[in-house]
Design a protein around this nucleic acid. Structure first.
Lengths: 231, 231
DNA sequence: CCAAAAGTGTTGTTCGTACACCCATGT
DNA sequence: ACATGGGTGTACGAACAACACTTTTGG
């Protein structure tokens, strides 16, 4: 069998929306490397594929290790492959191919020591080519908000339409008309399930609380820009 | 460095539209394997990543080897990564990770001996997990017709609106209203460039001939189904 | 003239945007 | 009362489906 031999790794782009510097921001889970190369640099969590593992197995195992094993069951089937990265010089130790993975999962617990959620806008200089993998993951997540119900996974178990809108606004860095957004998401069957309770204590009219519905696709999709008119 | 070692390969899903059994059909380039395992089975063209090659380099090299080196220059930058496949038992020789690639290229010459374009609908039982890779490639190509001008790459250098429509119909296995299709594609700026010549010899009114324009995106996209109403 | 294929005009519907307006609560 | 945020109604426009209709060739 011709060809060079590679170590194969999986790197995770774990995204969430957190309040940072007085606004909701898209954040990514990073870990501080404890060994060379890139010792003490931030990096995406990940690890090598072991014997008898498929890529998704490795991704699920690493995800459970980083975010608490409790979520492992719910994680299966919600891991999306991003792309493969295999530039000859991407790892000084030798040839390593890394597969990027993007998990779609509900709101996450706070990270352990040595790990943190940092706003993607402030992140530069990650280890290896992780800046690139992160950029691809963010772009994929942005695209998925358009045609899937992924945004609801960034919210807590119960949330308001405004919470959901803030997810879109944080991920896309745009402003969305609250009134049209309301109609759009509440009229999509299976996206949001109303609960009996309402929120109290806020300033205005108490909003309705919703849970995630069974729908995964958005038809028609949510539009990201005010239509790029082709003239 | 922990983890198992893999050979890394690239497999190409080279698609084209050809006339087969009296109708235009989406066909894929396959090669007959000359060695074990899966000797004499059909397989996707591909090969192993060599030293100092990145994945795209390997894909471009294999593509040039299979379709004639003449196209190599035009091929750069038109290779889209599909996904990585690394099931532990996908290759009996040992652990092999394969990256699928989908080239977007203009109409192709006839294949060499030992290779053929076969209708994707008739293809089963390819070597390794190539049935799966093919299915992923076909689905990606179908999706790309919606929002890119890829369909024009399946046509000869000069083509009619009807030629272009037949590409959509062959790839999507649907029927499209010729009149609305005409308006849609001719009104998208940069998609089609009219030429001075017209076709003669056909049965009805001679159609206008077009060349591929510079546009790569389709805004708004071409719709694939009569809108899957969510009720 | 007639059939066949190319191409245009028109109408109804769906869906998004913009924005006026009403609702329900805290202060 | 009034500010604040939640939520509804409505008018306008863009784009698509459906299909009648005109144009231009070959037989």
């Amino acid at each position: 069998m011709r060809g060079n031999l590679f170590a194969v790794a999986v790197d995770l782009v774990v995204l969430t929306v957190r309040r940072h510097q007085q606004r909701d921001q898209l954040c990514v889970l990073l870990v501080r490397r404890g060994e060379r190369p890139f010792e003490s640099h931030w990096a995406l969590p990940g690890g090598f594929v072991q014997a008898d593992e498929d890529l998704g197995d490795t991704a699920a195992r690493e995800l459970a290790a980083q975010t608490g094993a409790a979520t492992q069951g719910a994680v299966q089937g919600h891991l999306e492959q991003l792309a493969g990265y295999a530039a000859p010089d991407r790892d000084p130790r030798g040839r390593v191919l890394s597969m990027g993975y993007l998990p779609d999962l509900p709101d996450l617990p706070d990270p352990e020591a040595g790990a943190a959620f940092l706003p993607v806008e402030d992140v530069y200089g990650l280890a290896f080519d992780h800046d690139r993998i992160l950029a691809d993951g963010v772009e994929r997540a942005r695209a998925k908000l358009e045609y899937t119900t992924l945004a609801a996974a960034f919210c807590p178990a119960e949330f308001t339409v405004t919470d959901l809108r803030r997810v879109y606004e944080a991920v896309w860095r745009t402003e969305i008309d609250p009134r049209n957004f309301q109609r759009k998401v509440t009229s999509t069957p299976g996206f949001l399930i109303p609960t009996a309770t309402r929120v109290t204590g806020g300033r205005g009219r108490p909003p309705q609380l919703f849970r995630r519905g069974p729908a995964t696709a958005l038809h028609p999709p949510m539009l990201r820009e005010p239509i790029p008119v082709p003239v």
